Simulated scan of single mutants.
Amino acid sequence: MKAAIPIYDICSLTQRQDDLLISRFAPYLKSHRNLHLAHKHSFYHLVFFTQGDGSQTIDFKQVPVKPFQIYFMIPGQVHNWAFRGKVDGYIINFSVPFFQSFLLKANYLEDFPFFTGIVADSVIDVPAGMQQQITGLFEQLIHETEEPKPLADDMVRSIMLQLFIAIARLGFTSVNKTIPSYNYTLLRSFQKLIEKNYATLRLPKQYAELLYITPNHLNALCNDVLGIPAGEVIRNRIALEAKRLLINNDLTVQEIANQLNFADNSYFTRFFKKQVGSTPEEFRKTTNSHD
């Protein structure tokens, strides 16, 4: 039987105890050729491409790779690359606690639109007018890690926050043109609640109660902003977790159904087929044949 999907932490990539890895991408890729296979990270991960072609798959959604594209991943997402030709740029891996001791608001990063785990929001083309600025920030980060000075970690954190805010402003500009800030905040709160409770809370009315709004209000919000009802947002997150678990052949379909709190295997299979278009066994077979 195929081994379980690998889950990497920063230590396994650097061979030392650390909360941070910053590198130019070409040497990193050369040292970690195995990362073209599907894998998970236990840390935050972002890459800024300055040169490259091919594709990558994040949580089973394939996106093209191109110069001056930046992508962000949160812990637990499934990822693999399929590059063509020479690829270069910059990579940052950092642990969940890396900013927690630095910022009073422990979940500060969750407010950035690209750290939601939604693939469509986390792969961003940097416009020509910002490419020099973003490249300069990455060069500062490389310099700080290659020639560390007093308070180097705090300097790195402050440069990373400049980077995050600069990229976030791109997204906020486009979001704010069409979505009132209150609705955007409410939607993010809904998404965060789903992330914490998808295995136990399945109904929009349960989330509406936690948000102190009516189920109709929640449905209208999701339909207006996302184009799908609240129930579909919840079901999509459950289906995504099922996909992530199914690529681990060490788990049986029954065990996955139990982990996601389905009453029985047949109910889970019906749910999965309706959401994904194939049975769990078919999805597992097809996905594994691509590795």
Rank of each mutant, 00 (worst) to 15 (best):
M1A: 12
I5K: 02
S12F: 03
Q17K: 15
S23D: 09
F25Y: 14
P27R: 00
K30F: 06
S31I: 02
R33V: 12
L37W: 12
Y44M: 08
H45P: 00
F49T: 04
T50H: 08
G52W: 08
D53M: 07
G54L: 02
Q56I: 09
F60D: 09
K66W: 13
I70F: 10
I70S: 02
I74Y: 04
Q77H: 06
R84S: 15
V87H: 03
D88W: 07
F94P: 03
F98L: 05
F99Q: 02
S101Q: 15
L104E: 15
K105F: 06
F112Q: 08
T116Y: 02
V119T: 14
S122M: 11
I124Y: 06
P127Q: 04
G129F: 14
M130R: 15
Q133K: 14
Q140A: 08
L141K: 10
I142E: 05
H143M: 12
E144W: 05
E144V: 07
P150F: 00
A152Q: 13
M155Y: 11
I159T: 15
M160C: 06
Q162G: 05
I165W: 14
G171P: 05
F172V: 14
Y184Q: 09
T185Q: 14
L186M: 14
K192E: 13
Y198C: 03
L201M: 15
R202N: 06
L210Y: 08
L210D: 03
Y212P: 01
N216V: 05
L218E: 04
L218D: 10
L226V: 05
L226A: 04
A239C: 13
E241N: 11
A242T: 07
L251R: 10
Q259W: 01
N265T: 11
Y267P: 00
F268Y: 06
K273L: 03
K274F: 05
Q275H: 06
Q275I: 09
P280T: 12
E281F: 11
E282L: 01
F283G: 03
R284T: 01
R284G: 02
